[in-house]
Simulated assay, not measured.
Amino acid sequence: MPQVDDHLGPADPEKRRQADQAYDALESMIATLQLKPGAAIVEAELISQTGLGRTPVREALMRLVSCGLIVQQARRGLQVSEIRLAEHLDLIEARRVLERLIASMAARRATPPQRQDLLACAQTMLSSAEAGDLHGYMHADQALDRIIHAACRNPAAAAAVVPMAIQCRRFWYAYQHQGDLLRGAQLHLDLAQAIAAAQAEAAQTAADALMDYLRGFAQAVID
């Protein structure tokens, strides 16, 4: 998933890079439940865990608040947001609309290197799934999202879908025992192949199929 920089202001490149690193680290910790739903945010611990300074960590926390992954609780400070089962299906349907748009635009606008990188990430997801390497799978999934969002060249759509994608990734990680890793990897590969081939309609269809998979997975958890 590409990072949205407008929260950072006109910072110098090194400070921006550190803030992005902090955001990536905290996002991954939330998505993989190292920071559990409802957990209190202790800034000093995050600074120690990320190896980054107070300023980039605070910038990252601000961005995560804007994404809804961290919430401000009265008299309790910052906490990781809860996973809300009842709202998750609605989130997927909202994400579906954006993913169709992003997929079709990426198919039309991606550069040749981006098309190659998409295929490489999707293949890594598939090989990780075959090996049962969940960490590798999730890392490649995150990288694939970033490339697609950059390739679509629509920052507004990318910024809107990023929080939804993170919520879906966290939901999947929390209930992975009910998911089919290989099926998920194949659907991501189908999407990457359609975008790489500049087939906008096929990319939309592949995005729909991926959302159908996520909806079916979520429905199985809720039922």
Rank of each mutant, 00 (worst) to 15 (best):
V80R: 02
V65Y: 03
V65D: 02
R95E: 12
I70W: 03
E201L: 11
A151E: 06
A31E: 12
M125G: 01
R109E: 07
P163R: 09
A158M: 04
L64E: 06
G132T: 07
H149P: 00
P155E: 14
Q49A: 15
A165L: 15
V97K: 05
M1K: 04
A103L: 06
R54V: 08
R153H: 10
R84S: 11
Q72M: 05
E14W: 10
T55K: 15
L118Y: 09
A206H: 13
L8I: 07
Q116H: 13
N154R: 09
V4E: 11
D20Q: 14
I70K: 03
A31R: 12
S81E: 14
Y137N: 06
G38Q: 06
A160T: 09
R170H: 08
T205K: 14
A207E: 08
P113H: 12
L214R: 15
A103I: 07
L101W: 05
M125V: 00
M125Q: 14
A203G: 05
Y137E: 08
A160M: 15
Y213L: 15
V97Q: 07
L64C: 08
A218V: 14
H139D: 14
E93D: 13
R96M: 06
L69G: 09
L210P: 06
V162G: 03
Q219T: 13
M211T: 13
L187M: 05
V162R: 15
R169M: 11
R54K: 13
R100C: 06
L126F: 02
A156V: 15
L26P: 01
R17P: 02
R63T: 06
A11I: 07
T50W: 04
A194N: 09
F171T: 03
L118P: 10
Q176F: 04
M105D: 08
R84F: 04
Q123N: 13
Q186V: 07
R84A: 12
L187F: 01
M62I: 11
A40G: 10
A156R: 15
Y23D: 04
H177D: 08
V65P: 00
R115M: 13
